[in-house]
């Protein structure tokens, strides 16, 4: 047969005029986010290389102090740089809190999501609704609810005292424990929902095949179900880890201003700290940490699809 010539241009045109018009529909949303979402981030980037003005805001003078401050403090008298681990400790604490929260959420969330996914369809819908409600409920109010329970005069202490198990309240509020508890409580639904989405699609014929090939319940769980729900596990972990790392409300209310996390540190520089460049550099370091986490996520998911 003879060669077919390449498509003439008029055909491409006829097809793409409509498609090109449709493209423009994306522009309002893209413009809004670009102007009011991306430009502000660029401003933060610029601010991080400026000097702080005495009453908030910035002086337009290049300075790398904001980044040096991450590890060093300038001596007020001698102007020499001294190593100061204060910020590093806050970052370390935030990281540990985020990891602990993610792991515990996974430990509780996986069985929950699996149980949901194995209910009959009608029941499943109700479970999803029950998990979705806290997912979309006011974070501040939910944190407040935790505070009410763990205060010195809270339900836990009152109950324990009235049962004469203790005779004076245990301090729970404004501790590391309180923060982690609050984070767990806040972000548990963020783990359950993506896990459920991936477990719901699980092909249970594969589970039957594993049983047929002499696997025990435990082996079925660890060798079949968990490996197959990896995308959900990764997505859920990320959805918990990222907001936990940058948590602001939880430590603000349950940490009482003494047990800071990165989020509070950043907010403080824009408030009472009056050091916008420092806050900006902290925000960028947090962003970098999030990007690293996202990078691992993308790598894990693309590798997963390659193997699968």
């Amino acid at each position: 047969m003879t060669n077919i010539p390449a498509p003439p241009d008029f055909e491409a045109e006829a097809h793409q005029t409509a498609a090109r018009k449709n493209r423009l529909l994306a522009s309002p949303a893209v413009l809004i986010v670009a102007l009011f979402g991306i430009v502000p981030l660029l401003i933060v980037l610029v601010y991080s290389f400026l000097a702080p003005a005495p009453y908030g805001g910035v002086l337009w003078k290049f300075s790398t102090d904001a980044y040096l401050n991450f590890l060093f403090q300038r001596d007020i008298f001698s102007d020499a740089l001294e190593f100061s681990p204060a910020f590093l400790l806050i970052y370390f604490r935030s990281f540990v809190f985020a990891v602990v929260t993610t792991v515990v959420c996974l430990g509780l969330g996986f069985p929950t999501a699996y149980f949901m996914a194995t209910r009959p369809p009608a029941q499943r819908n109700w479970w999803v609704l029950l998990i979705t409600i806290p997912f979309w409920s006011n974070l501040l109010v939910r944190t407040l609810a935790i505070m009410f329970i763990i205060r010195d005069e809270g339900l836990i202490n009152i109950t324990l005292m009235s049962l004469h198990i203790i005779d004076k309240p245990i301090t729970l509020l404004y501790t590391n424990f309180a923060i982690v508890l609050g984070l767990l409580y806040s972000f548990l639904p963020f783990m359950v929902l993506p896990l459920y989405a991936s477990l719901e699609k699980l092909d249970f014929r594969l589970v039957e095949a594993a049983y047929d090939l002499y696997a025990t319940r435990r082996q079925v769980l660890w060798r079949i179900i968990i490996p197959m729900s990896m995308p959900g596990i990764v997505a859920g972990s990320l959805l918990v880890f990222i907001p936990t790392l940058g948590a602001y409300v939880t430590p603000l209310i349950l940490g009482g201003g003494t047990h800071l996390m990165i989020g509070d540190l950043i907010a403080q520089q824009f408030g009472s700290g009056r050091n916008w460049p420092l806050g900006s550099s902290q925000a960028l370091i947090l962003m970098a940490a999030v990007l690293v986490a996202l990078f691992f996520y993308v790598r894990a998911t693309t590798r997963g699809t390659k193997n699968g």
């Binding site: 502000p40 981030l41 933060v44 940058g246 900006s280 925000a283 947090l286 962003m287 999030v290």
Partner: peptide
Amino acid sequence: VPEIVTAIATLS
């Protein structure tokens, strides 16, 4: 983007 970062960026 973590919410606190969006918050201070928008403020700035």
